[in-house]
Design a protein around this nucleic acid. Sequence first.
DNA 1: TGCGGTGGTCATGTTTTTCTGACTTCTTGT
DNA 2: ACAAGAAGTCAGAAAAACATGACCACCGCA
Lengths: 105, 105
Amino acid sequence: MTTAQDKTNNESCPAEGLLKLLAGKWKPQIFRLAAESPLRFNSLLRQIPGANRQGIASALKELEQEGLLRKNVISLKPLHTEYVLSERGHTLLPVFRQLEGLSQL
Amino acid sequence: MTTAQDKTNNESCPAEGLLKLLAGKWKPQIFRLAAESPLRFNSLLRQIPGANRQGIASALKELEQEGLLRKNVISLKPLHTEYVLSERGHTLLPVFRQLEGLSQL
DNA sequence: TGCGGTGGTCATGTTTTTCTGACTTCTTGT
DNA sequence: ACAAGAAGTCAGAAAAACATGACCACCGCA
């Protein structure tokens, strides 16, 4: 394809974009864990069964770019980072909780 | 089932499954339109810009299998079907609306 | 008798996502 | 000095999602 199309916002459906933010692999789990307490990379890797480095890395990166998580660099000396819910993440939390509530149906 | 990992329910995250139901392409749009009025296949195809037969067909099929839509066969003589929100679909609707509300953020 | 509409399916690409395993830089512990 | 842990990156392969175009059976209409 030579002619590029605008993929950034073709949305005739408002919910669509929001849905996509959380739909990727590992993302819901990460989001949920981040809502509980700050996350560290290797710790996350260990506590999510079946996860792989790359998967977690890219999920974290995307969640950060989408503005749902914020990455804090605690120290550079011994490299130490943590991921926490951003404000946007917090505003999204209630509806995420509702999804959890409905999941039994 | 044997020893293999159960892909049907590996979910350590309750919201994950629900998220997946609506995450496919065209699915949010279809769901939203179905909430307004019953849908007919070709009509849907015409009113969703950029959609293709196959995409709509498989989205409808999945939404039906997941229990969000119900397919009514109105008549066989001239084949005539319609898709409406199922009960499960209706219970999901409020959360969907909230997502729409939050979409501006 | 043939055209157009209904509601699809099927085979085949192409594109996107995800997985796998190796590699990197830095620091602390032994 | 060396190993191990932190936090990633990168290339390539495999798998999943999506698009494209052809095809089918049936009906109603002129």
